[in-house]
Design a binder for these strands. Structure first.
Lengths: 120, 120
DNA sequence: CAGTATCCATTTTGATACTG
DNA sequence: CAGTATCAAAATGGATACTG
């Protein structure tokens, strides 16, 4: 794996630094979709949140540069994006965030959460 | 930004919706400082990440409108901001994010993490 | 001290057209 | 299909002066 590209970390605080990598509204959504089995560019574009190809492309590149995802392309097939082990270590955090959302935000619906939990 | 903000949720997904509330680079940093015992406006401004009074004010108002923090003002004393129980339920998530940062981002330093862990 | 107001630069985004 | 290019619009941010 290549060295992660440098990020302009605001401090040496580990929490703030993690946020410098995944602290936005899109990154964990993309990772959620990967966890749900999506691998292709067009599949991510189809998410209900509706992100643009521009933003998706930017996030994928950045996440790859940070060693969070890997772009796999075998021959002439469609590229597949998969989470690295490093990123998978955030799965539990994602589940807990979603559970918090279910508890505290009315009207949330989660078809996949039970499935994710069971895989642990 | 004084209106009791309703959030423009992008979807009914609980994870995406949580990110619509705390999905940025500043919110969890402010909550971290509250967890560390800070309660006052000027204390938050002193954080090593260096946020402006403008951003701080915006985030505090929004978080209060979302029931994440409470502004406590007794008489003529300085206002104190404290996390609600609802927000405290994200403490464990914050700890896990910080631990991930310590493991995967070189050079991170965390004087308070052990303390936070012990309080659980 | 606790914020708010202002000004302005930078970033981010959306929509969409376009290319291999 | 998998992106990139482009352009305008909007959100966000920093710095700082200012008020009760």
């Amino acid at each position: 794996m290549t060295d992660p590209a440098s990020v302009a970390f605001r401090s040496t605080c580990p929490l703030a630094s993690v946020l410098d990598i995944i602290g936005d509204k899109w990154t964990l959504v993309i990772m959620r979709d990967m966890l749900a089995g999506k691998t292709r560019f067009s599949e991510f574009l189809d998410s209900p949140e509706g992100l643009s190809p521009r933003v998706l492309s930017q996030r994928l590149s950045f996440l790859e540069s940070q060693g969070m995802i890997q772009k796999v392309q075998a021959g002439r097939t469609h590229p597949a994006y998969v989470l690295t082990d490093k990123a998978m270590e955030l799965k539990e955090v994602g589940i807990r965030l979603a559970e918090w959302g279910l508890r505290h935000i009315p009207g949330r619906v989660s078809p996949y959460l039970d499935k994710f939990r069971d895989e642990d």
